[in-house]
Each structure stands twice: as structure tokens, then as C-alpha cells.
Design a binder for these strands. Structure first.
Lengths: 154, 154
DNA sequence: ATTTTTTTGTTGACAAAGAAACAAAAACAG
DNA sequence: CTGTTTTTGTTTCTTTGTCAACAAAAAAAT
């Protein structure tokens, strides 16, 4: 197995495991709210001046998906829509108090995830972590080039 | 930003970029076949003795999803269902010649992805790669423990 | 200033996946 | 063996997302 193949394999299982763990936690704590809903609430909470298109790009989904999701969240009273006086087309969103509550619970869960894995970052040699970060950066740079080369950027 | 937060951020964009690139490639080359279909064909090709439950566990989806997908692939003549004489319940699958063709195209594409990123693994210091692999292993070990602790294993 | 092009958001038809309820078969317990 | 429990796969309903066609508004071109 080449290092490249090893990397792919390790990355694959890592993602699977992180997904498994966070999904279970989210479901347990945010009963009644779906993962995609919470995800959008979190993004709007962090970016209260983002319009539909920007939310879509950031979450790697289509504008249609965001349009439907924001309508659903409005119906459930979790977000509010607003516009700026100088533009009748772009739509922006902010959290209602009810949405804010979800946002806070999610933020707390995120802190929990971080604490859960903190020991790994504390007990591994700092050089190993630094090398990993450097490598991921290198890989990301390469992929950015490839994306540009193919004209696939968002 | 703590190293842990940096890691999360780098990992997030890495995954987004890899997804973007491979999706575009798959769609371009395997026109008419969805990513999920190809994924299942590939798994069946590699594991011709896996039943529905095993396919589901390996791909982190529900048995229902696999049930539907295999039915679809059968209708399209890409896979065949078979049973073992001593068990009337478990279902197994193998590729038809048409499915084999998809499998081969996918395999070729995978080699293409590998070549696309090969330069990263060639031009980065071996020590950096080794440290990265070591770190991912450490992280994976930790997550395995956490999954076991919570009784979430597949 | 008017026309053309691009951006922005929505909609409807459809595809993929999850969850829960279910039936059939297999495994197990006594 | 017989009855109970577990495993296996399917089905229905719901959630989430894509895609493509569309209308309205904004931006760019001339």
C-alpha cells in the first residue's frame, strides 16, 4: 500500500467515524430538528448578512435547496427574512429567539465534540500535529489548483 | 485558532474539494449513472459475497437504501441477485457484464484521481507524510474508543 | 437610455436516503 | 422439538437535495 493509499484509507474511516459520532449526539440533543436544519441555523447565526446564494455556496448545495430550507425554517419560526432598502432582490436572514435557542444548543454540542477529541491533540507530539497541518495545507493548495484548472470553483 | 480548530478547518475544505472534483469527473465520464449507483457497483464488484446488510454497514447507509438501490441496479441489468442453497433469507449480488463495464470505468477513474494527486505525495517531505499518517491513526484509534464507549459500533 | 446579459430566488418533477413498521426466515433457549 | 428472539430484507412515508425552467431585478454593454 502506498502512502497515498494509506492516507485515503485513514481519511475515509476518520470521516465515517466522526459522522457516526456527531450524528448520534445531534439526534440525542436536538430531538425534532434535522441535521440539515440545524446546519443552516448555525450558518445563518454565524453569517447574518448572507443571502441565499452565499449560503448555498458555503454549504455546497444548490440555491433551490437553500430556498426550500429557509422557507421551512421560517414556517417553523426559527429564522426571519429581511431585505436591504437599496436592493429588492437579495434576501437575508436572521435568527428568531427560537432559532437562537437551537443555535446555542448546537454551539454547546460543538464544544462537546471538541472536548471529546481534545486528548488526541494534547497527547500527540506537537511536531506530528504541525506536520499534519502542513500536509493538509499542501494538499488543499494542490486541490485548489486542480479546481481552478478545471474551472470548477464556486 | 487552536491546532484542533485548524485541523477541523483544513479537513473540512479538503473534503469539500475532493467531493467537488470527483463528482464532476464521475458525471463527465459515467454519464447516465449516478454516483450512488456507481459506488454500489464498485462495492459489489469488490465484495461479491456481501449481502444487503453487509453492503449497508460498509457504506454507512440503511438496509432500506441498499434494498432500493440493488433493485434499481437489477432492473437496469447491472447486477444479478443470487442465494445460497442453505439459506433462503440472505441475498447476494454479482455484477453482470454490463455492470462489469461500469466497474472498470470507475476503476480507471479512480486511478485518474490518484494520479491527479500523486504530485502532492511526491513533492512533500516523506517525514511530513509519515507524521500525517501517524496522526490520522492516532485520531482513528481515539474515535474507535469513543464509538465503543457509546456502543455505536456497526 | 435602451437593450442585452447576468444574477437572484422560486418552483415542480424527480432521485436518494432515513426511519419505522412489517413479514419471513434463522438462531437460540429451554 | 417448540416457542421466543434476532436477523434480514422490503415497504411506506418523510426529509433533503438536484436539475431545469422560470420571472424579477440588477448590472453591463452599446
Amino acid at each position: 500500500m502506498t502512502p497515498q493509499q494509506q492516507f485515503e484509507a485513514q481519511l475515509g474511516t476518520l470521516i465515517d467515524k466522526l459522522t457516526l459520532l456527531s450524528k448520534a449526539q445531534l439526534e440525542a440533543q436536538l430531538n425534532g430538528y434535522k441535521a440539515a436544519e440545524v446546519h443552516t441555523i448555525q450558518y445563518i447565526g454565524d453569517h447574518p448578512t448572507a443571502n441565499v446564494t452565499q449560503i448555498a455556496k458555503a454549504q455546497y448545495v444548490t440555491r433551490g435547496a437553500v430556498s426550500k430550507m429557509t422557507q421551512r425554517l421560517m414556517k417553523r419560526g426559527l429564522i426571519q427574512r429581511y431585505q436591504k432598502p437599496d436592493n429588492k432582490k437579495a434576501l437575508y436572514f436572521r435568527l428568531t429567539p427560537a432559532g437562537e435557542k437551537i443555535y446555542q444548543i448546537h454551539a454547546q454540542l460543538s464544544r462537546g465534540f471538541q472536548q471529546r477529541d481534545q486528548s488526541v491533540f494534547e497527547n500527540v507530539a506537537p511536531a506530528e500535529i504541525q506536520a499534519t497541518l502542513a500536509f493538509l495545507e499542501h494538499y488543499n493548495q494542490h486541490l485548489t489548483q486542480e479546481i481552478t484548472k478545471r474551472g470548477l470553483e464556486k
